[in-house]
Design a protein around this nucleic acid. Sequence first.
DNA 1: CATGCAATAGAACGTCTGTCCCACAGCGTA
DNA 2: TACGCTGTGGGACAGACGTTCTATTGCATG
Lengths: 210, 210
Amino acid sequence: MRSTGDRMRTRILEAISLLSDSTGRPPTNREIGDHLGGKSTGHIDYHLRILKEQGKIRHESKKSRGISIATSLEPEMLPLRSRRVPVMGTIAAGRPIEAMLDPDDYVTVPGVTEDNLFALRVRGKSMIEDLIDDGDIVVCRRQSTADNGDTVVALITSGPSEAGEATLKRFYKEPSRVRLEPRNLSMAPIFVNPEDLTIQGKVVTVIREM
Amino acid sequence: MRSTGDRMRTRILEAISLLSDSTGRPPTNREIGDHLGGKSTGHIDYHLRILKEQGKIRHESKKSRGISIATSLEPEMLPLRSRRVPVMGTIAAGRPIEAMLDPDDYVTVPGVTEDNLFALRVRGKSMIEDLIDDGDIVVCRRQSTADNGDTVVALITSGPSEAGEATLKRFYKEPSRVRLEPRNLSMAPIFVNPEDLTIQGKVVTVIREM
DNA sequence: CATGCAATAGAACGTCTGTCCCACAGCGTA
DNA sequence: TACGCTGTGGGACAGACGTTCTATTGCATG
C-alpha cells in the first residue's frame, strides 16, 4: 500500500531533482517546501530523514543544501549517432537571417551523421499549419536545390520587396517561376524568378522546447 | 601582466570546480577560504565580486552557495548540456504505452541536464492543435504531479473504458475531478477521479523528424 | 472508545552564510 | 613624500538555514 507519505516523499524527490537542475545546487528545506505549495521546513526535514533512512538520498547533517539524490545504477547508454549543430540566428517570413556568422547556441540532433547542418530559431507563425510555431528550432541540411513540397530556407537575392531576405517557406517549382508558400491562411504565397532565389537549406527536424 | 590577484582568482576558480565536484554543490565562501589555506571570507568575497565582473562565474546574490562557474560558449562545453533519453515506446489517446520497459531508441535532447527524462513516440492526432503530430517524439520529465494546462502522460488506473491505459493529454484540475483534454476538435475531454489517475510525466520538448 | 502512529503546521533557536566595514601592507606614480 | 590601487585579514551583523519541539488532525487497530 502506498501511503500519503510515500507520495509526498516522491514529490520531494522530484522537487530536489528539478530544483537542483534548474539552479545548479541542491535546494534548501524551505525551497522544497515552497515548491510543494508552502510546506513547513520541519515537515520537509521529517520526510528527508525518512528518505535518508530509505537510502534514497544522501544527507550531510547541518550543512546548508546538504542533500543529493542517491545515484541509481543506470545502464550505460550506448553512443548514438548525433551531431551538434549551430543555431545561426532567427528566421521569419520576410525577414533576413540575423547573425548568420555567429552561432549563439547549439542543438544536438539525434540520428544524423551529416556535417552540413545548421539550425534556426523561427520567429512568427507563418508556418503554423505545418506545425512549426513561433520559437521552434528548425534544423536544416545545407543544400542549394529543393524538391516540390520541401520546407526550405530561401534567400531572395532580388525582387520588388523581399530582396536580400531569407524566409522559411514551402517550395514549389512552377513552369517559369518558383512559388514560395507560407503555411498560414492569412499569408499569400510569393513568386520569384528562379535566378533571384538561393536555396540555403531544407528543414529536416523541428525541435520545440515547452 | 598577470597579477597576484589573477593567480588567486585562478586558484579560487579551481577550488570552486573541485569542491563542487566532490560535494555535489557549490562551496561557501568559508569553504573556499579554508581550501586555500585559511583565507578570510571577506577576502574571498572580494575576489568573487571581481570574477563576476569578468563574467567568469555566475553569482546569485545573498543565496547560500549561489556561485557557479559560467558555462563557456565554446562548443566543447556544450555537449555537457544535453542528455540522451530513451524512447520508451509509443503513446496515443486511449492506448497504453507499449514496450515501456524496453527502450528501442534514444534521442538526444539539447539544453537539459536532468536525468529523469524519457521519450515517447506519439501515435495519432489527438494533440494536433498543440502542434504535436502523429510520429512526433515527446520528451517528458518524470513527475507525479502536474499544474493546470501542462501536457502530461497520464495513466488511468481504473474506470469504465480507459482502464490501464496511458494517454497524452492536457491536464486540468477541477473541484472534484481531473479533466484530461485532447487538443483535437473531434475529440472530447475525459474526466477521471484523481485517485484513478497516475501522472507519469510532463512534456518538455517536442521533436519532429521530417 | 482509547491508543498510537503518520503526517502536517508553526515557531523557536543556534549555527551557517554572505556581505559590509575597517585596518594595513605593498607597490607604482604624481 | 603623499596618494591611490590592489591584495589581504579580521570582525560584526542580518538574514538564511537546519534542527528541534509542540500541537493538531486523521486514521488505523485493539
